[in-house]
Design a protein around this nucleic acid. Structure first.
Length: 568
RNA sequence: GCACCUGUAGUUCAACUGGAUAGAAUACCAGGCUUCGAACCUGGGGGUUGCAGGUUCGAGUCCUGCCGGGUGCGCCA
């Protein structure tokens, strides 16, 4: 249930009844003693009307009808309304996520690695954040169209294909893509003849030379299989079906330029085709151009993104298009969206959003440069994560706690915990800020980490396996009693609100923070409220809360792309 | 030069977009397992939110100016 919007509506209706206007500004209470939720909007509304905020707040409390929803309403401070939910309402609000009343078609553009190289740790963010938001949107009933805009076209492929032609066994030498790229680059930089042949290869490729295309296809397939194996290890919901390579727009670039021309948007400048828009004017009134075609006739990536939008808006009929792309491309997207709007490629009904994420920095707080050897391969990070988790499992003698656990299950656990920790370390941080890559931080298993949440989940499960109680036989709703139960129940009831917020704003760290808070409330409840030794009625109630907690933790972690284990 | 982002405990990060006493984790200190799982819990210290003004009932958040860090800016993607 969407508690926040329900309460907001009621309070805003009371505003109207009192001749006021404004938003309720509803949020969960900043402190437990203030109740469960608080409305902050009264002060501003009263001020606009020239009235006393505390009196207005009291008038709203007197007028509003929250029977069966709130058990207590009070005025606090300069004019806050504190709201304590009714126990029955909290109980009924605890349901699995409900589909949106307004399902949309949402294109989610994420991951987008450059297929010329192997994926490194810098590719992690865009891949897992986009994947998480795609899952959240889907869980709310939206139709998600995943688009992996891979870099599979352009000048560097001429060099790679020429180098590949020299190798006896292409698939073997491509086993280490990073090394392959380095060797090719070295040839390119030191051998003039090689360089010339590389340039010719590009021309042949882009003009559709059949032999060259076959070689290119071979390379792309091998490189893509590298990516796919990482996606599989990371449980990323991407496959060949979601491939949206730059190459697929090659034939449409010409038409895109023609379209811009037909809209009267093109201006030639120094031989290049440009779009000048007033909104990119600086203080001196000079307009910055968006170049869509080079003086030699070649196209640029703005052109390719415009062609891309033609497909997403025109063919896919998207209501929203979300780009999970590095923050350094902010200006680029502003330009593309503006040109698309001016050209009628997009329209006011479709929402185009660049959801930027921060740059990865080295330990010295400086941007991770592509110096040779400076980049950590993503596969190496995952290997290390699993190795550390495996060591931890040995140290904790998990087999002593779970005598029937075998080596295979232990290995599976190490993977679930290790990969989960890596993903959570990234997902739990605000998307937009830069971050420092640090092994130990990335692979921590203590505190606010995925293992903590996975551990909390496994505890909810172990109660059932140890007691033999059938979780499906429990009632769907129970009315909590006492603070620990109540605090837990309120958090469970707020899950839907949280998911809606994440779907709207695209910040996975909010989901992480919610789950961490929920898990904390659960362990506090667990410490203070005996379950299995209690009377039947109390036991049933507490088991139900335990089951609900486990369900939300499992669901939330799944949406983060993190697996759970029944025991660990 | 112009534009955008950014500065919060020793460290890594939050703060629901202007709300009440700025919260977690980590590290450190003191407690807690014969009692449903100690990857945990309870308590403690640790802050002039870069600096200085301003806006208002109220500012980490908004505006201005400095200082420090980063990124982008006509034919790479």
């Amino acid at each position: 249930m969407q508690i926040r919007s329900l309460l907001s509506q009621r309070i805003e209706a009371a505003f109207t009844a009192l001749g006021l206007s404004g938003q309720a500004l509803l949020q969960s209470a900043s402190r437990p003693e203030f109740g469960d939720y608080q409305a902050n909007g009264v002060m501003a509304a009263a001020k606009r009307a020239g009235q006393n905020p505390r009196e207005v707040a009291q008038a709203i409390i007197d007028a509003i009808d929250l029977d069966g929803i709130a058990s207590d309403l009070s005025v606090a401070g300069p004019g806050f309304i504190n709201i304590t939910l009714a126990p029955q309402f909290i109980a009924n609000a605890a349901t699995s996520p409900q589909p949106s009343v307004d399902p949309q078609r949402v294109v989610v553009d994420y991951s987008g690695p450059n297929l010329a190289k192997e994926m490194h740790v810098g590719h992690l963010r865009g891949t897992i954040i986009g994947d998480c938001i795609a899952r959240v949107l889907e869980s709310l009933g939206h139709t998600v169209i995943r688009q992996n805009h891979v870099g599979d076209w352009g000048t560097q492929f001429g060099m790679l294909l020429t180098f590949m032609a020299e190798q006896e066994e292409a698939s073997d030498s491509l086993a280490d893509l990073e090394n392959f790229y380095r060797q090719a680059k070295q040839r390119f930089d030191t051998d003039d003849d090689f360089q010339t042949r590389s340039r010719q290869a590009v021309v042949q490729l882009q003009s559709g030379n059949a032999d060259m295309l076959v070689e290119w296809q071979k390379f792309i397939e091998i490189s893509m299989s590298h990516c796919q194996s990482l996606y599989d290890r990371l449980r990323i919901d991407l496959s060949d079906a979601d491939m949206d390579g730059e190459s697929s727009y090659n034939d449409d670039l010409k038409h895109t330029i023609e379209h811009l021309d037909s809209q009267g948007l093109l201006t030639e400048s120094d031989g290049a085709q440009c779009v000048f828009l007033d909104e990119f004017k600086n203080k001196d009134g000079e307009v910055q151009p968006v170049i869509v075609q080079k003086s030699d006739g070649g196209y640029l990536y703005a052109t390719s993104d415009l062609a891309c939008l033609r497909r997403r808006v025109g063919d896919f009929k998207a209501d929203r298009v979300l780009y999970f792309v590095d923050a350094r491309q902010t200006l680029h997207f502003k330009q593309v969206f503006a040109v698309a709007a001016a050209a009628g490629i997009s329209n006011s009904k479709v929402e185009l959003v660049h959801m930027p994420f921060g740059t990865m920095l080295g330990k010295d707080n400086k941007p991770f440069k592509t110096r040779e050897g400076a980049l950590v391969k993503l596969s190496e990070l995952l290997d290390e994560a699993i190795a550390r988790a495996s060591k931890l499992l040995q140290e904790r003698e998990v087999q002593n706690k779970n005598p029937d656990i075998d080596d295979a299950e232990l290995a599976a656990l190490a993977e679930i915990i290790g990969i989960g920790a890596v993903k959570y370390a990234d997902l739990s941080k605000n998307r937009t800020s830069d971050y420092v890559f640090d092994w130990d931080q990335m692979l921590s298993f203590d505190g606010n980490t995925a293992p903590y949440l996975q551990y909390a989940y496994s505890r909810t499960r172990s109660i059932f396996t140890r007691s033999g109680v059938d979780a499906s036989a429990l009632p769907e709703h129970v009315i909590s009693e006492g603070e620990p139960e109540r605090r837990l129940a309120v958090a469970i009831a707020g899950y839907q609100d949280l998911l809606e917020q994440v779907a709207l704003e695209g910040f996975p760290h909010q989901l992480c923070a919610y789950l961490y808070d929920l898990a904390g409330r659960f362990t506090q409840f667990y410490e203070q409220c005996p379950i299995l030794t209690s009377d039947d009625a109390v036991k049933t109630r507490r088991l139900t809360l335990t089951k609900q907690t486990g369900d939300v933790l499992a669901n939330g972690l799944t949406l983060l792309g993190i697996q759970v284990a029944e025991r660990m």
